[in-house]
């Protein structure tokens, strides 16, 4: 039986190379393409026949629009609407990636640290550039030295602020990656229990872990949504920090 971590293995489907870098089409790439196709299909079907009084499909798409719009409005304000497309895409991309990963024999690309870190690092760079562009480098650097703090304290506070700022992409990416990996590993372990206990006790012994597995699958679906939400809302908060340095 394959181990619980085997599900995260990257398998090459088509080998490719560009500028000396391996850009092979893998199971992770396939899962990402499925995510993009699923989102595009979801949007296309929802927005195919646009009506002023929306149909059920249109309502679902519009409610996702309203959800993100409300999130940006609450956390950034009207200035944040410039980044709406990015946050909307980010949220749906992660959410659908997480949810499609719940399907049997699929692949959860959000359980790979390099993917989550790339997204988080891009956000980190973007947010830093927005802050510098909006306020200038001096004001941006003052962000690490809060006003009104006694000078001796700054020796301690500035490094803490800098470390806290630099750790943002790490915390953002590790949170999503660790949640997804841990969840799927746990599902695999409990799934193993169902199989092994069931096989050794004439099926009866497998019932309890199966019930637990079902409950855990429900929990994982909630976590899939929650992590996408947390990722999007933290992005909003970082953008808010960049726009209104405090």
């Amino acid at each position: 039986m394959a181990g619980p971590l085997a599900q995260f293995e990257i398998k090459k489907i088509i080998e490719m190379e560009a500028f000396g870098y391996d850009i092979s089409f893998t199971n992770s790439s396939l899962a990402m393409i499925m995510t993009v196709v699923f989102i595009s299909l979801f949007m296309y079907l929802g927005l195919r026949n646009l009506e002023i009084i929306p149909s059920k499909k249109q309502s679902v798409v519009e409610s996702s629009y309203e959800f993100i719009s409300g999130m940006i409005g609450d956390n950034i304000g009207n200035e944040g609407m410039k980044y709406f497309s990015f946050i909307f895409t980010l949220f749906l991309f992660i959410l659908v990636g997480n949810l499609l990963g719940m399907l049997p024999y699929s692949f959860t690309w959000t359980s790979h640290i390099i993917v989550t870190f790339s997204i988080a690092f891009f956000i980190f760079i973007g947010v830093t550039l927005i802050a510098i562009y909006k306020h200038g480098i001096v004001k941006f650097l003052k962000f690490f030295a809060p006003s009104g703090v006694p000078k001796p304290m700054l020796i301690l506070l500035v490094p803490i602020e800098i470390i806290s700022y630099l750790s943002r992409p790490i915390s953002l990416s590790v949170r999503l990656f660790a949640n997804m990996m841990a969840g799927h590993t746990l599902l695999k372990v409990i799934g193993g229990f169902v199989f092994v206990l069931g096989a050794n006790s004439f099926i009866v012994g497998g019932i309890l872990p199966l019930a637990f597995l079902i409950a855990l699958t429900g929990l994982e679906i909630v976590i899939a949504f929650l992590q996408a939400y947390v990722f999007a809302i933290l992005t909003c908060l970082y953008i808010n920090d960049a726009i209104h340095l405090h």
């Binding site: 089409f25 992770s28 993009v36 595009s40 990015f86 991309f93 390099i114 790339s118």
Partner: peptide, 27 residues
């Protein structure tokens, strides 16, 4: 952990960037 295998990093970053940009542009 397969996640820590750097061999697949370039491929994952490439496809992530490409597909995210495509999805962003479509949206």
């Amino acid at each position: 952990m397969p996640q820590l295998n750097p061999e697949s990093f370039s491929s994952q970053i490439f496809w992530l960037t490409l597909l995210f940009i495509i999805l962003f542009l479509i949206n």
